[in-house]
Amino acid sequence: MAQCTQSSPPRKGLGRRLLDLWQTRYTRPQPGARQAVAHLTPAVVVTGGSHGIGLAIARRFAKAGQTVALVARNPGPLQEAAAAIERDFGAKAFAIDLDVTADNAPFELDARLAQHALYTDVLVNCAGVGLSGNFDGQDAGEIEQLLNLNMTALTRLMRHALPGMRARARGGVLNVASLGGLTPGPYQAAYYASKAYVISLSEAVGYETRGSGVRLSVLAPGPVDTEFHPAMGTEHAFYRQLILPLSAEQAASAAYRGYVLGCRLIVPGLLNMLFAVALRILPHTLMLPLVGWLLKPREERNWSVTNDNEQ
């Protein structure tokens, strides 16, 4: 696990230039690739960017002076979030209302970005959905929705964006998973399994793209203080009482720092890092009962959340 512990990434000086050179150690831009987008502005594209972790990550990139494009389904909150970013940081922020689970979403996203003279330089996949309760009592349609958003849409967007990034030898992908992706999660079985997929995919593709100029990181936070957990009906589960949540801003700062430093797996918070190590090394025969006890809902019903962003 490449976890970052430094307090802040290097500024745009010698250290940052050396980091960028290291990222491109095996490659150079393909002829004409950067010229093809020279008339466009590079943008950090954040799915699930209207609130929660997604919005906090967008704000952190905007604070660093980068143009951001917020993507989610509901135009109202998107417009408000983009306006707040421009007001607070003086950075350009654009709102793109789009259902990322649509089959043509990657091409529609390209077209909508082009309307604003933008292209995807950094892709942040934060859109996600959670589901809690007994697996055999959950609605089959809601499980399909979870798989489509958490896995299929993320994979499709990532696969679409990477070839151009590699040709330009710059850019990157930051996927948002969960600490739960490191273990099976009874009573949140499909959700935890989807996050295991995101972590595995990100780490594997991150290895494939090493030295290509493309950063590829995955954020795996523990509980974060957003609307995600209450909407999923897990506020009375023991893990919500025992594990102190991070703020969305703390998770976003760790995500930005780890992405800049080129870390593949980013686990924010010292306690969460210790949990991550334990989940990696302890056998399932010990961890599974403990995780099940922590996650078990204290109310006899199934819950789902269909928010546009993670955690």
Results as ranks from 00 to 15, higher is better:
Thr155Pro: 09
Thr155Arg: 14
Arg156Phe: 08
Leu157Gly: 06
Met158Lys: 00
Met158Ile: 05
Arg159Thr: 15
His160Asp: 01
His160Lys: 07
Ala161Asn: 01
Leu162Thr: 03
Pro163Ser: 08
Met165Gly: 03
Arg168Lys: 06
Gly171Thr: 00
Ser178Val: 08
Leu179Pro: 08
Gly180His: 02
Gly181Leu: 04
Gly181Asp: 01
Gly181Val: 01
Leu182Thr: 00
Gln188Asn: 12
Ala189Thr: 13
Ala189Trp: 09
Tyr192Cys: 10
Ala193Gln: 02
Ser194His: 05
Lys195Gly: 06
Ala196Glu: 09
Tyr197Thr: 12
Val198Gly: 07
Ile199His: 12
Ile199Gln: 08
Ser200Ala: 15
Ser200Glu: 13
Leu201Trp: 14
Ser202Thr: 13
Ala204Asp: 10
Val205Ser: 04
Val205Ala: 03
Glu208Gln: 14
Glu208Arg: 11
Arg210Glu: 01
Ser212Asp: 08
Arg215Thr: 15
Arg215Met: 07
Leu216Asn: 04
Val218Asn: 00
Pro223Ala: 10
Pro223Arg: 00
Val224Arg: 06
Thr226Ser: 06
Thr226Gln: 01
Pro230Ile: 12
Met232Val: 15
Thr234Pro: 04
His236Asp: 15
Phe238Gln: 15
Leu242Met: 11
Ile243Gly: 04
Pro245Glu: 00
Leu246Arg: 01
Ser247Thr: 15
Glu249Asp: 11
Glu249Ser: 04
Glu249Tyr: 00
Gln250Cys: 02
Gln250Asp: 02
Ala251Val: 03
Ala254Met: 02
Ala255His: 08
Tyr256Asn: 03
Tyr256Lys: 01
Arg257Phe: 03
Arg257Ala: 02
Gly258Glu: 10
Gly258Cys: 12
Tyr259Asn: 04
Tyr259Leu: 06
Tyr259Ser: 04
Val260Gln: 03
Val260Tyr: 00
